[in-house]
Design a protein around this nucleic acid. Structure first.
Length: 429
RNA sequence: GGAGGAGUGGCUGAGUGGUCUAAAGCACCUGUCUUGAAAACAGGCGUGGGGCAACCCACCGUGAGUUCGAAUCUCACCUCCUCCGCCA
């Protein structure tokens, strides 16, 4: 949610954001009118309360009775206006950063850099679903019978590789020395305070997810009405509110978490899309970074997260491109979104594997996560969330980039220590 | 699932219908004193909203209710603690 004061002072910016993020149909004038009315009625309520306090001090019971009714009427009016106002306010997307390209959809995204050499195969590279099936490490058929479409079994060395990836990330960013290496590699100057590993809940209250501005579109969430619980679509959903309703001290920041969890998505609008393999699943495991910083450090924090993403991909030797996501394609709460697309030779294309979302104070305002500055002022914290590894998609990239003509898959060197020194995934006998 | 107890400012904690405009202590800030610090003493010290300001209003887990008046009484919910049961 944006600050009403900000909207009042920057209506043109807000209008542009609504338009460029394809959220047209929001009546900004109505919002400003309601905000003025709310302010006026709040003043009335304040006056009535003052008189009421005076009546009480004087033990004037008659006046008290009258004022009680006046107050009830004013409060009811206030609630009505408040409800309509907040209902409209939460529909306004966050303002894109100045360097965010304006564009209607993903066609407007800008590739800012590429890394790595696409592998040169002397044979026709296969897609991961064929590689996985032949090696007996991806079983979609049995999963289909047991759980339905968009579920799979990952087996054997592929399952072990998941744990290797988790270990690689945790080793790299949860200790200061290793994180300092990442920072040096990315040529950044930033506090090397390590990430704290977290295994977060995967169920949460819809109300809290709403405060994270991540509830919609609700059609894409698994919602358990009987229990009033919703399954997270990303660890970010339960990592972000870790400090809700808290007043943090400036010296505590930055606070960095790296969470490992399963993510759940209904893929409601994706019928028929990416139905083969493990690219688009109802359930997948993901390692996610979440940072809380001072407002002035938010943008640099996003660069850190992208730095972590690139460092890890380079460790794995996977070719990728970094994409600055345009207004029409970026997330609703995002101020600046950077995606990484990794080369998938079996599909002969780059596919999105990472996202880094800088949301500014947009989520913190509703989460009520604030920081008390050294000078005594108070303001919403700024937040960043970013993928460390979407494990399924990373496994796809490894399978497709490291495939050999004989059907085996070479294990990237950096993962071998976590896999008992094994060099190749081969067909089990 | 059953039985009990509890949620008050950054922290501890008093407060059982009207001087609560929330005691006190700790922490923190400023000043006096000191070469400096500590101690002592004096003062300050929550969040949000309104107002140029003096100042005013709201907030005692959340939401409803009773009352002229609620931190205090009632109901629901949330969270935590103790015990019992079940359980990886």
């Amino acid at each position: 949610m944006l600050d009403i004061q900000f909207i009042r002072e920057n209506p043109d910016l807000v209008r542009a954001a609504i338009k460029n993020k394809n959220r047209e149909g929001i009546d900004l004038d109505r919002i400003l009118t309601l905000a003025d009315e709310r302010k006026k009625i709040a003043g009335d309520i304040s006056d009535i309360n003052k008189k009421r306090n005076e009546a009480q001090a004087a033990r004037d019971i008659e006046a008290g009775k009258r004022l009680k009714e006046e107050l009830a009427a004013a409060e009811e009016k206030f609630k009505e206006i408040e409800k309509e106002l907040v209902g409209l306010l939460v529909k306004i997307p966050n303002i894109p950063s100045a360097d965010t390209p304006v564009g209607p959809d993903e066609s407007g995204n800008v590739v800012v850099r590429q890394w790595g050499e696409k592998p040169n195969f002397s044979f026709v590279p296969k897609a991961h679903w064929d590689i996985g099936k032949e090696l007996g490490i991806i079983d979609s058929e049995k999963a289909g019978e047991i759980s339905g479409a968009r579920f799979t079994y990952l087996k054997g060395d592929l399952a072990l590789m998941q744990f290797a990836l988790i270990n690689l990330v945790m080793h790299t960013i949860t200790n200061k020395e290793e994180l300092a290496k990442v920072i040096a590699h990315a040529q950044l100057t930033i506090d090397p305070k390590p990430f704290t590993a977290v295994i977060p809940p995967v169920f949460m209250r819809p109300q809290v997810m709403n405060r994270m501005a991540r509830l919609d579109p609700i059609e894409d969430r698994f919602f358990f009405e009987k229990d009033d619980l919703i399954l997270i679509g990303s660890a970010e959903h339960t990592l972000g509110p870790l400090h809700m309703d808290e007043m943090l001290q400036e010296a505590q920041l930055p606070i960095r978490y790296v969470g490992y969890s399963t993510a759940f998505r209904r893929e409601a609008g994706a019928a028929g899309k990416d139905t083969r393999g493990i690219l688009r699943q109802h359930q997948f495991d993901k390692i996610e970074m979440e940072s809380t910083t001072l407002p002035e450090d938010g943008l640099a924090e996003q660069e850190l997260m992208v730095g972590v993403q690139e460092y890890l991909l380079q460790q794995l030797g996977l070719p990728y491109q970094v994409v600055l996501v345009c207004t029409g394609d970026m997330g609703f709460p995002d101020q600046r979104q950077i995606d990484i697309e990794t080369w998938m030779p079996g599909q002969n294309t780059f596919r999105e594997t990472h996202s880094a979302d800088y949301v500014g104070g947009f989520q913190a305002r509703r989460l009520n996560t604030r920081v008390k500055r050294a000078d005594g002022s108070v303001e919403p914290v700024h937040m960043n969330d970013a993928t460390a590894f979407a494990i399924g998609r990373t496994l796809i990239a490894i399978l497709e980039n490291y495939q050999n003509e004989d059907g085996s898959v070479t294990i990237p060197e950096v993962l071998r220590p976590y896999m008992g020194g094994k060099e190749k995934i081969e067909k089990a006998l």
